[in-house]
Design a protein around this nucleic acid. Sequence first.
DNA 1: GTGTTTTCCGAACGAACGTTCGAACTATTC
DNA 2: GAATAGTTCGAACGTTCGTTCGGAAAACAC
Lengths: 249, 249
Amino acid sequence: MAAIEKQDSVARRGTSGTKVSPRSAQISVRYDQKLEFILRHAARIFAEKSYHSTSMRDISRATGVSLAGLYHYCKSKEELLFLIQDNCFGRVLERLEERLTAETDPTELVRIFIDNHLRFFAANMAEMKVLSHEADSLRGDLQAHVFDKKQRYTRLARSLLANLQKERAADVQADLTIATYGLFGMMNWIYNWYDPQAKLKVAALVENIFQLFLYGFLGGSQATNRTFASNRTEESLSIWRQPLNDLKA
Amino acid sequence: MAAIEKQDSVARRGTSGTKVSPRSAQISVRYDQKLEFILRHAARIFAEKSYHSTSMRDISRATGVSLAGLYHYCKSKEELLFLIQDNCFGRVLERLEERLTAETDPTELVRIFIDNHLRFFAANMAEMKVLSHEADSLRGDLQAHVFDKKQRYTRLARSLLANLQKERAADVQADLTIATYGLFGMMNWIYNWYDPQAKLKVAALVENIFQLFLYGFLGGSQATNRTFASNRTEESLSIWRQPLNDLKA
DNA sequence: GTGTTTTCCGAACGAACGTTCGAACTATTC
DNA sequence: GAATAGTTCGAACGTTCGTTCGGAAAACAC
């Protein structure tokens, strides 16, 4: 778990990195700055060509740090991915909690949540894409650590939605799980199409997604067990022609 | 472009594969069946551990076909990915077009679109995950070919939404681009959480997502340029502490 | 200055990768 | 049965991968 502790040197500006325990604070700052410099470039490349097809030589080339030199700042390629994800998620959560405490209205709380998420996304497209797209690329403890943060984040979102529902749509209960993941889907999908440089401003994006979700969430009546007209569509929709068995002959 | 032609042997039940041009139809069918058998397993493994970290040896192990033997049925690992994506997408489109022609009501057309997409997703989670998650893993012609299909699919969705908007919400125009990608986000994200084996049935999933989207799309008013209360949040939301410049010192 | 710590890197390691080759085997045709 | 076409695979090729090692260079302490 050494790597998890070490992330403090990036996630919090507190005490120095623990890897080499430099004597003076000044050296520590230099170390942290360069680590961050490497992480920024790593995040960009991971976002461009995915974690698994990025080589340490790619990162070396992009940063100007030699291949061996990189290992002075991380203990493995996997730790680079972890530091990006954990640091990114940490900032999103940190900021969200700050902003939520200043508000009590359920609708505004949900709006703040969406606003915070999308603004971070737009301001850190590479890192957020890596967080969304490489969710399964970590293993073991590192994966568990990020998963845990993600679960707390998801639960928080869900509870915000539950409150909103209780307040404004106690009669028509949309499925909370579907609504929560639907919202995350809308928000996290934007790395596939949204360009922060283009004319669509973040504020407009936030407002539209907020409205889109809010009305759907509050206005939608529960799936009324009314069986959909063409439910004859229970026929096999498999992509494949053969039934799934082990051929072998 | 040979690979693109060859996919006919999987995507359409028509004439035989072109790679070895077998003489009798019987041999061709056997060839196609085994190719499909390989593709099914490949799709499952690609979905489990991603395309780039799956090795041909993994696929060899899972199928029982020797490493060299695989290359009798495909010309490269990339072609396996292409065949999965193109075949999968082809079926979704093919089926969708069939179903759309039987209906004219704009609302029902959108419902059919969502229903078709989600049912295919639920019935082919591995393949659809590969289609969603490995969108950038192909290169060159193969990528262009799938991108083209995807663009046509997206445009079709967008036009369905445009019709619905014209018919039922001509006054309040939600942003069509955001709505389209928002819908795709909700739908394609399900590979991150939905389990077709669990208690939530596909019909309920479809109904909920349809309602969630429909009310949001029709009920949401255009982002009214009303500047969001906490628009003070234009401060830097960067994950990183340092401004982005080339350090080098 | 000397001594010590931190930073950096050329060169190499073993492992794993995608792909190929040629020969062996099986099925089909006449 | 002989000839041909289709299928299978062990073994290897060349490349690239993540990581390590030992020591040079630079920064710091005194």
